[in-house]
Amino acid sequence: MLSILAYSFMRNAFIAGILASVIFGMIGTFVVVKRLVFISGGVSHASFGGVGMGYYLGWNPLWGATLFAVASALGVGLVGKRTMQREDTAIGIVWALGMALGALFMSITPGYLPTMSSVLFGNILMIGRIDIYLMAFLTVVITGTVIMLYPRIQGVSFDEEFSKVVGVRTTVIYLFMLVLVALSIVVLIKLVGIVLLIAMLAIPASISGEFTHDMSRMMVLSSILSLAFIVTGLYVSTVWDLPPGPTIVILAGIVFILVMAVKRVSVAVRGRSHSVG
């Protein structure tokens, strides 16, 4: 196992994986309990437009992705605040429009470009030093935010109206959290890809939710689970020569299905023994 770390791109991938685990754990918990999985999907796909625009304009695609992700997160978040029933429409539009723009930009950009699939499904070979620094920075910001704002985040997630009544600036907190979700998505694109990202935001947190009823413990537990999925996935993908992003997500998906199945069966068995006894 350690031998594969001799390659610098694998070292980068593992360091990125460790940082990503913390981000997935904390942001994923918020996304799951506040039911933002679909918004996150929209933001993630919208950022593809920014990646394409970045290539076309000759920027680092990361900045284009940041622009598109943050703008779509704030846009959808504000639409949702104004009219609840329009939110899913806005998400769907942002989702497809981002993909269309990305595909268009990449097709009209001259010269050599990474394949579209490496953006959509992740490519650890693309993880460079700057990505590691950005992820480390974001990990610190997210951890700090969660610690400083924990009661408010918990309050806004559980009952936004009540929080507002007692004087919490709920819209500010909500939009700020959406921006953190957007930034997290941007730095994680290279690891698992635009299409697969929401799985890593949703799965570890959902599994944790089956084992703990405390948001802070959920964050810790889903970070640990993310780390396990990423490290195992990276290792398996290297040994069997598989694409890492899909491997990590499939691994997480299998564990998710197993945990849910075991839970349901054990509940059913307990229910039956109750009715017999």
């Binding site: 918990q154 559980f158 007692v166 919490v168 405390d214 948001m215």
Partner: peptide
């Protein structure tokens, strides 16, 4: 309410002190 939300009784009640 979303009764599956991961929160304990005491944390719900503490929300009254958020302000």
């Amino acid at each position: 309410f979303d009764k599956k939300f991961p929160i304990r009784v005491r944390d719900v009640v503490l929300m009254g002190r958020l302000g």
